[in-house]
Structures are given as C-alpha cells and as structure tokens.
Design a protein around this nucleic acid. Structure first.
Length: 465
RNA sequence: GGCGGCAUAGCCAAGUUGGUAAGGCAGAGGCCUGCAAAGCCUUCAUCCCCCGGUUCGAAUCCGGGUGCCGCCUCCA
C-alpha cells in the first residue's frame, strides 16, 4: 500500500509519489514572530512534524523548509506600540519559537529562512511578474492583477465571480485602492506608520506583501515545483491561493503537487480568543505543571483534518495513557530469563501502525495498534512466557515507533533521592516484621511526596507519580 | 447570500469499493497482593443526530430534516 494523503487541490486521498524518487521536498508555513506560539499554532507544527517523521520512517529523504515571517502588519504594529526595533522584537520570538519546538520534541526542519533575509529575491520575483504583465502600480505599491490568472480559486474551490460579488458585503471596496477588491499586494509603499521598517529597492521604498515571501523562499530552496505544502486551514484562502498565483504566473510551471491543511484547535469547546482568555501558550501549560509529552499527545492524537478540542480532562487522559506506556517499558526492562522472542507480535503491531499512518496519517489507528501490542505482550508477561530477547525486541519496536510519534520513548531518567530509598528500605524491614501499619504509613508518606511504591515479586519498585 | 466540514458509549476518538461498531481515559465485578499499585480477565453503544428510501444486509449509499462549526476579512 502506498502512502496516501488527502490533497486539498483535488479533495480526495491520492497516492503520494514525490517528484524525485526517495526524496521529498516540503514547505510549511511557519510562525509570524510577534508573539509566543499558542497551542493551536503548535498543533499544526505537530502535524507537520508527524508528516515528516512518517515520511522518513518510510525511507524518504526529507528536505523540509519552514519560513519565519518577520516582517508583516501585526509585527510592525507591535513595534510601533512597544517602540522596540523590528529585529530585536522578532529575534526574541524566534528564539521562543525554537524553545517551544524543543519542549514538544518537534524535529527541526532542514531550513528556516526569514523573510527579511530575502528582500532581494522577492524584488526579483515581483519584477518577473511585472515583466510578464501580472502587476500594476498604485501610489508606489504593486498589486497582483488577478484577472491575468484565470485559474485562481482552484485550491479553495472559490469561484472568481463569487469572490467578486459575494463576501456578504463585508468587503467594502471603497477601502481598497486596487482595481479589483480581490487583487492583493506584492509590494507595499512606505507609509509613516511603518516607522523604521522599510527597504530602498528598485521597486521603491517600502516592504513586501505577506504572500510573496512564501512563493519566493519555497521556490528558492525547493525548486519551482515541489511535493508538499502544508499549513493551517485558514491559510488555504487567500494565502495559499495567492502563493499559487504568484508562483505559477512567474514560472509557468505547476507550483505544488500536494496541499495538506490542518484543522483548528478549540479549547474546552470554544474557539480560542482574547476575549475568552483561553489562548494558551505552551509556556502557560508547562508552568502549570503539565508534562510536555502529555501536551504532545493531546495535540497529536486527533487526526489532523479533524477539528480538535483541547481540554484539561483530555490532557489528564493523555498523561494516564503515557503512564501505561512508561510502566510497560519498566516491566520489559526488568524481564529475565528465556521465552518467546515476540517476533510475531512485533510484526503485527508495526505493520498495523505503519499502514494506519500510510492512510493519510491515521494516528488513532496507529495508537490503537500500539495499545493492542501492549495488551498482548502484558498477557504473555503475566504467564511468564516472554524472555529477555522478547523484551529487547519490544523495546526496540517502541523506540522505532517513537521516532515517528515522539510518544513511546523512555522517559527522562530520574534519580531517586537517597532519602526516598531509605524510606523504601525501612518499609521493607517493617514488612518483614509484619508491621504492616508502619509499612502502609511509609507508603502513604512516599505518595504524599510524589512517589508511587509497588511491591513486585522481585522486591519494591518506586516511580514518580 | 456563496462555498465547505462535522454529528459514533460518561469523556476523547477510529471506522464509507455496505456485511454486522478499533483504541485510550473514566466506571463496575473478578484474579493477583498482608493491603495496595501495576498487570490480566469479564463488563461498559442491539446501536452510530432524526425521518424516509435503496438492499438479503447501511454508522457506511440516496432523499429530506435538525444541530454545531469553519471559510468568503488578518489568523495555525
């Protein structure tokens, strides 16, 4: 079975075949660095991480580019309001962005080009569009003339006529200085509100429009045609539609083969909004004591095209699921002696896992395969039928699947403090003396300090609660 | 007004070339244990928003209806 993705362009699942066999070129719309990323942003980055990891798992070499939007209306407004220069403002949030990626265990892309490092390339692209008759100027700004690109709307399946007449009256054409309300800016002429943010170029004094950076940087690093382009569903229109128009009008070649869009994240059944005060950043959640890996689980465990609802109840359930995996790993690591090598269980699990993800990244099916494996192996462990070889095979499997999901790896090793070990020892002595009252009191004390004590056939075991 | 999506157990969530409802969390009973914990076993939707239809058979197809949501304007 080939890998299949739901392509927004065709609205169907299609077998995935990269342009160059064994090598995947993908571009994902990155953060606008004027703020900390919220968990909705991170959900999309998480989906893209799963996508690249699964493609790697299936043996593809990945060339993944994610842009950093570091000049744009909202950033400029933030500069104006805070008095902070553009560069220092964006540098701060670029750093925060990478910290968040690390916290969640999101793999790094191969390149993170920043818009402000590519002004010259954008100017060239706009010049090309101008030479080919796709632009017009108004007061020093340059616009893309949509009427020269009749294929517009193919991705979002909007009809040009509808866009013109529709919009429920919310588009007031008087606000626009364009010839047609649908036309968008490639280059914005300098205005006083832009402050220090401008470039003196052949196109005049000003700054690039938002859409041009993605056309420019994706084609620079991945070629005029490449395999996959991702982003949040809200970017489908107009951003990605505009990217297609700019790129294909300039090159005359098909821009992107597979478009993948992720659905939005809700918080406790509500859309995130400032007025509801439910815009969570990763840092908020970590500061409240939530385990980053549980957050990762919560954000990744709903299929990417399905709207997902982030709740604290769900986060707790994610932590429980993670605990089950952790305990399974502990149990495997303690196995001694001979027994089955678990070859058939490992094979069954890995096949089901892989096939689920091959089917448009069906994460639910993949997770189910792992839990079925855990139950099957625990059953054998219960009957003492698994041996060291089997345990090693099972742990190796979890490590392989962890490379795809970042959910099944060994937790950070944690030293048990000597004081805790002393208490465990003292309890053992109490138990040997049948002083169960004392033993239970010590166990309660350990629990109060966050340590769970379990008595096993091989003696006591302590772990973090 | 136009375009599009979703509705499956207490919660989360798979499942459409139709064939008799994955998995996780929570809950109940049991085994194990000094007692626990972990693990295992059993149990937890005669039914998949509602009403019709097609079919030997539909959560999956068709028609109608209800509810929720998104996009059409910056937005992951």
């Amino acid at each position: 079975m080939p890998i299949r993705f739901f392509n927004t362009l065709t609205r169907t699942k299609e077998a995935f075949e990269p342009l160059e066999e064994g090598k995947v070129r993908m571009y994902t719309c990155g953060p606008t660095v004027y703020n900390f990323a919220h968990i909705g942003n991170l959900r999309t980055f998480m989906f893209e991480d799963l996508l690249r990891r699964h493609l790697k798992y299936r043996g593809h070499a990945i060339h993944h580019v994610m842009n950093l939007t570091d000049v744009e209306d909202k950033i400029i407004r933030a500069c104006r309001e805070t008095g902070e220069p553009l560069k220092s403002l964006t540098a701060k949030y670029v750093q925060a962005f990478f910290e968040d990626l690390d916290t969640l265990g999101i793999e790094r892309a191969e390149a993170y080009p920043a818009a402000t490092d590519h002004i010259a390339e954008m100017v060239e692209l706009i010049k090309t569009l101008r030479e080919k008759g796709h632009t017009y100027d108004v007061d020093g700004s340059i616009y893309f003339k949509l009427s020269t690109f009749p294929q517009y709307g193919r991705l979002s399946h909007f009809d040009m006529e509808q866009l013109k007449t529709g919009a429920s009256g919310r588009v007031d054409s008087d606000e626009y200085e364009t010839e047609d309300a649908r036309d968008f800016a490639l280059w914005k002429a300098y205005v006083e509100d832009d402050g220090e943010v401008y470039w003196e170029t052949e196109l005049g004094k000003g700054r690039p429009g938002w859409h041009i950076e993605c056309s420019c940087m994706s084609m620079k690093y991945l070629g005029e045609s490449f395999d996959i382009h991702c982003g949040g569903i809200d970017n489908m229109f107009p951003h990605h539609e505009n990217e297609i128009a700019q790129s294909e009008a300039a090159t005359g070649r098909p821009f992107v083969r597979y478009w993948l869009h992720s659905a939005h994240l809700f918080v406790e059944n509500r859309k995130m909004s400032k007025s509801l005060g439910n815009i969570y950043t990763l840092r908020d959640l970590v500061a409240k004591g939530h385990n980053p890996r549980a957050i990762r689980w919560a954000l990744i465990s709903t299929h990417y095209r399905q709207p997902s609802n982030f709740t604290f109840e769900g986060l707790a359930a994610a932590q429980e699921a993670l605990n089950r995996i952790r305990d399974f790993r502990i149990r495997l690591a303690e196995i001694k002696g001979d027994g089955t090598d678990l070859a058939s269980e490992v094979e069954t699990c890995e096949r089901a896992f892989g096939e689920a993800l091959d089917d448009d990244l069906n994460i639910s099916g993949a997770l189910a395969a792992v839990f079925e494996f855990i139950r099957d192996v625990n059953r054998l462990l219960e009957k003492s039928e698994a041996g060291v070889a089997g345990a090693q095979a099972a742990l190796a499997l979890l490590d392989r699947l962890d490379a795809v999901t970042g959910l099944f790896g060994a937790p950070e090793p944690e030293e048990t403090p000597q004081a805790i070990l002393d208490l465990v020892m003292e309890r053992q002595q109490a138990r040997r003396g049948k002083d169960f009252k004392r033993a239970d009191a010590i166990r309660d004390q350990l629990a109060a300090e966050g340590w769970i004590l379990e008595d096993t056939a091989d003696g006591p075991r302590v772990k973090r609660g």
